[in-house]
Simulated assay, not measured.
Amino acid sequence: MSSATSTRRDARRNHERLLAEARTLFAERGIDAPLDELATRAGVGAGTVYRHFPSRDALLRELYDQSIAMFHEMAPEIHSAPTGWRSIELLLERLSEWIAATPYLPELMRRVAEIDPHHRPGLAFADGLEKVIERAKAEGSLRSDVESSDLNVLINMLGSLGRFGGDYLPFWRRQLAIVLDGLRARPGLEPLPGPAQSFDDFDRMAHRQTR
Score class of each variant (00 low, 15 high):
residue 12 R to Y: 08
residue 13 R to W: 00
residue 16 E to Y: 02
residue 18 L to P: 04
residue 29 R to L: 02
residue 31 I to G: 11
residue 36 D to S: 15
residue 40 T to R: 15
residue 46 A to Y: 09
residue 47 G to V: 07
residue 48 T to C: 07
residue 49 V to P: 12
residue 51 R to D: 03
residue 52 H to Y: 12
residue 57 D to E: 13
residue 59 L to T: 02
residue 59 L to V: 01
residue 59 L to F: 04
residue 60 L to M: 09
residue 61 R to G: 02
residue 62 E to P: 07
residue 64 Y to T: 13
residue 66 Q to N: 15
residue 70 M to T: 15
residue 73 E to Q: 14
residue 80 S to N: 13
residue 82 P to T: 08
residue 87 S to K: 00
residue 95 L to V: 13
residue 96 S to K: 05
residue 99 I to L: 15
residue 102 T to A: 05
residue 106 P to A: 01
residue 108 L to D: 12
residue 110 R to H: 13
residue 110 R to Q: 08
residue 111 R to W: 06
residue 112 V to R: 04
residue 115 I to Q: 10
residue 117 P to N: 04
residue 126 A to G: 12
residue 132 V to C: 04
residue 138 A to M: 03
residue 140 G to K: 02
residue 140 G to V: 11
residue 141 S to W: 04
residue 142 L to S: 12
residue 143 R to Y: 02
residue 145 D to R: 09
residue 146 V to P: 04
residue 147 E to D: 11
residue 147 E to Q: 14
residue 148 S to H: 09
residue 148 S to N: 06
residue 149 S to E: 00
residue 150 D to A: 09
residue 151 L to C: 12
residue 153 V to T: 07
residue 155 I to R: 09
residue 156 N to L: 14
residue 161 L to K: 05
residue 162 G to R: 09
residue 170 P to A: 04
residue 174 R to K: 14
residue 176 L to R: 06
residue 181 D to E: 15
residue 182 G to C: 13
residue 182 G to I: 04
residue 184 R to H: 00
residue 186 R to D: 03
residue 189 L to N: 03
residue 189 L to T: 06
residue 191 P to R: 00
residue 192 L to I: 03
residue 202 F to S: 02
residue 204 R to G: 13
residue 206 A to W: 07
